[in-house]
Write a protein that binds this DNA or RNA. Structure first.
Length: 491
RNA sequence: CGGGGUGUAGCACAGCCCGGUUAGUGCGCUGCGUUCGGGACGCAGAGGCCGGAGGUUCGAAUCCUCUCACCCCGACCA
């Protein structure tokens, strides 16, 4: 080991930052709060995009694109919405630069002031609903099921690579429906899509739930979310799906004629996941040696590292590696054969571990003699030598095994770090000593929620959907409560 | 916007208190050779407006003033 990464157990955020940098995922940009997503990091994001995009299409959605600039006046049309986003909007005021009179660089041309200032979208509800107004006249025009992949800007005070950046990439779905029920079903359908994606692809268990009044999306009637638990015991909101009711339809005057010819406001939803999922992926599985990727999202599933002492061995090993590579590719596995002569095997081993490649094959002269290959799996660090004939079937099942194992590991971790608190003392003790999710009773008031947040920094992550009713007393106020909610300190 | 800190080679830093040869170390980079089954080693090299501006001084990376940028901790957030 040349340069060690800070230990996860000793310096969690240092560990996270180093993994992001050293695994070539992203780096800071010259502009504060923004990030440069590097090719390897972006290729993981692309895998996420491809999968999600397919899932969106399978549920009937189509992609479209709406502009990055939003007229300032649009934002103010929905009262809660403007309240929620006004404080973090970047604003375009001018459209031209000119050389400065002193000859030192360029300045904003004061002549080129925009009549109406433009904001850079923090989200696209406003432009989209303004557009939907023109697209919708009759119930026959509904539903509209649109998604867009885009960048958005929210001028955050404190930023961290992937977890919170001033500009981030995401997808935002925006749908319009004739009935409340249909819109509510859509909201939950997409929440399910996110949960399925998180669990089946990211191998990250999530809790589905709804947000409290104070945590919900500005402009939504209900906000649903998936919440995941990171390895430091903090929660991360990994995706949200909003039932917008008729709020935006009313704000933008979007009405349709129903079957009886009566004019009604349209019902809406919106839902999104962002590059924050990259942060979740990193923090859900990785270890002190670097990234650990689930095979289904790994840009490289298998890397082949050749071992040789001389040119003769090199060419023999390469010939065999080519054959293996071809076999694996035919089986639909993404393989990289790293035959660079510029790095030693040991260096490559460490490098691909850092980058989280699920399976590594090492092939050397001994293997050629014996008809074998060494297989190392990233998640458990186990190595074994297998015969060359069985390589494809072995790796196919190994990849499935790794995917299952890291899910199980994350699931067990979450189970071990989900606690029940029945009174204030238990609650604060668990928060300070253990962290994680805490199931506790809450009286349902914003006042209590605020007090708890103020005193402990813990927030209500969600009111779980799959929970059962249970009579109890609020851990803070002692007032009656009908069900437990999930508390945690969060990102 | 408050409180703390840092700007010196691509990266990480030393040097600064107490001013004085040619600004140094590690990693990385280039070349050559030996190596290659867990981040190899030797030799030779390249690379610096010491964040910027002003000042003090015979002399400033070092002292003073101003300024800019970034990082960390708080209030806000996917």
């Amino acid at each position: 080991m040349a340069q060690a990464i800070p230990k996860k157990s000793e310096d969690y955020s240092g560990w996270y930052n180093e993994i992001v940098k050293r695994a070539d995922l992203a780096e800071h940009s010259p502009v504060r709060g923004c990030m440069i997503i590097k090719p390897y990091g972006f290729s993981i994001w692309e895998k996420m995009q491809q999968t999600l995009d397919r899932m969106f299409k399978e549920t009937g959605h189509s992609n479209a694109y709406f502009p990055i600039f939003v007229p300032k006046s649009y934002l103010s049309k929905e009262a809660d919405h403007v309240e929620g986003f006004a404080k973090e909007c970047a604003v375009v005021t001018h459209y031209r630069l000119k050389n400065s009179d002193t000859g030192e660089g360029v300045i904003v041309d004061p002549e080129a002031k925009l009549e109406e200032e433009l904001i850079i979208r923090p989200t696209s509800e406003t432009v989209i609903w303004d557009t939907y107004k023109n697209w919708i006249q009759s119930y026959r025009d509904l539903p509209i099921l649109v998604n867009q992949w885009a960048n958005v800007v929210r001028w955050e005070m404190r930023t961290r690579l992937f977890l919170r950046t001033a500009e981030f990439l995401w997808q935002e779905g925006h749908t319009a429906h004739a009935t409340r029920q249909e819109a509510e079903e859509e909201t939950l359908r997409m929440l399910d899509v996110y949960a399925t994606f998180a669990e089946d692809y990211m191998a990250m268990p999530v809790i589905k739930g709804s947000k409290t009044e104070s945590e919900k999306f500005p402009g939504a009637v209900d906000t649903y979310c998936i919440e995941a638990l990171m390895q430091d015991g903090k929660a991360l909101q990994a995706g949200t799906s909003h039932f917008l009711g008729q709020n935006f339809a009313k704000a933008f005057d979007v009405k349709f004629a129903d079957k009886e010819g009566k004019l009604e406001h349209v019902w809406g939803t919106s839902w999104g996941v962002s590059t924050r999922l990259m942060g979740a992926l990193i923090m859900a599985h990785s270890d002190d040696d670097g990234l650990v990727l689930p095979p289904k999202l790994a840009p490289i599933e298998v890397v082949i590292v050749p071992i040789y002492r001389n040119d003769e061995q090199k060419s023999m090993v390469e010939d065999k590696a080519d054959v293996i590579q071809e076999q694996l590719r035919e089986a639909g596995i993404t393989v990289k054969f790293d035959n660079r002569d510029t790095h030693k095997p040991g260096w490559k081993f460490a490098e691909y571990e850092l980058k989280g490649v699920p399976v590594r094959l090492a092939l050397g002269p001994k293997d050629l003699e014996n008809g074998t290959v060494e297989v190392a799996r990233r998640d458990t660090r186990e190595k074994e030598v297998i015969s060359l004939e069985s390589v494809t079937t072995h790796i196919k099942s190994l990849l499935v095994d790794i995917q299952d194992n890291i899910y199980k590991r994350a699931f067990d971790y979450r189970a071990a770090n989900t606690s029940v608190a029945n009174n204030w003392e238990e609650f604060t003790n668990i928060l300070d000593e253990k962290g994680g999710f805490i199931e506790a009773h809450w009286d349902g008031t914003a006042e209590t929620e605020d007090k708890i947040k103020e005193e402990t920094k813990a927030t209500i992550r969600c009111i779980p959907i799959d929970t059962k009713d249970e009579e109890g007393n609020c851990i803070y106020s002692g007032n009656p409560s009908k069900r437990r909610v999930i508390f945690a300190r969060a990102y």
